[in-house]
Amino acid sequence: TTLKLSHVRPEGATIDVDVRHFADDVAKATNEKIKVRIYPASALGDYTLVQERVGLGAVDMAVQPPASAADKRFQVVYMPYLVKNWTDAKKVFAPNSSLRNTVSDLYGKQDIKVLAGWPVYFGGISLNKHINNAADPTIKKGAKLRVPPVKAFQLTADNIGFIGSPLPFSEAFTAVQTGVVDGVMGSGAEGYYASFRDVTKSYLPINTHFEMWYLIINKEIFADLNKKEQDALMTAAATFEAARWKTAETDQKRNEQLLVKAGATIEPVTDQEIEETAKIVREKVWPVVIKDIGTDWANSVLDKAIGAH
């Protein structure tokens, strides 16, 4: 069997390397009975579309962020400042954590099985110029940030002293260059290095959100495999995730340094400033998102994931 696996980064990116290891492990463990063919760079479509295609069984597997188009409750994992640092993240997003079970349930409703998670980075803000006190959420910076079309991001930008501006991703690079917007929010150092390094003059590692991708497979396709093959996939997936948890934090640092090499300054952000920002976001943004996705459900998920909030 050949399984088609889509991911969202170009060939040679960290996720691409990891996913190729995974494919090798699977091939070895099944005596080449199962081959994973990798389609990098969103060649099979963006993550929203690929998630639907995996649900339909038109694409077998993917590693990517969860998409909330088919079920807005997925937004719960995008909650800005759900976790504030790596120590929290390792607990809240761990395999078998309550949040992981929620994610698996949500995917399950779309005929998708979660094999593993892949922690990516903490999000930050990329700016085309230095802005004084950028990390102080109480100061109105008057700077516009391109935000992805997700309510939580737009509200966050507006509430921490920026102006969230929806713009198509395809126009974002030129828009930052000409100054239509002053920066970008919604990604992390790695994403900014890959797509915005020429226009990033200042990087604000303010931990806007914790980006987690999931290794997913169509349920039926998984069920059609024999027990030994299923086990091989699960084992390889567990290794894939465990290895990443060990390197994710250093990988984030490495990508920040790449931004520096490309000419950006990493702005100093204190834990105190992250706390303050988180407090504002949880007060102002969370209630809106929680109401959107269903108050009772969202609160119970959040209670289990991070305790009282």
Binding site: G142, K144, P166, P168
Partner: peptide
């Protein structure tokens, strides 16, 4: 509308593109 709200009023409309 998006240009005017963003550039003149500094408050772009959320969800307009949708």
């Amino acid at each position: 509308i998006q240009v005017i709200t963003r550039y003149v009023f500094q408050t772009p409309v959320m969800g307009l593109e949708e």
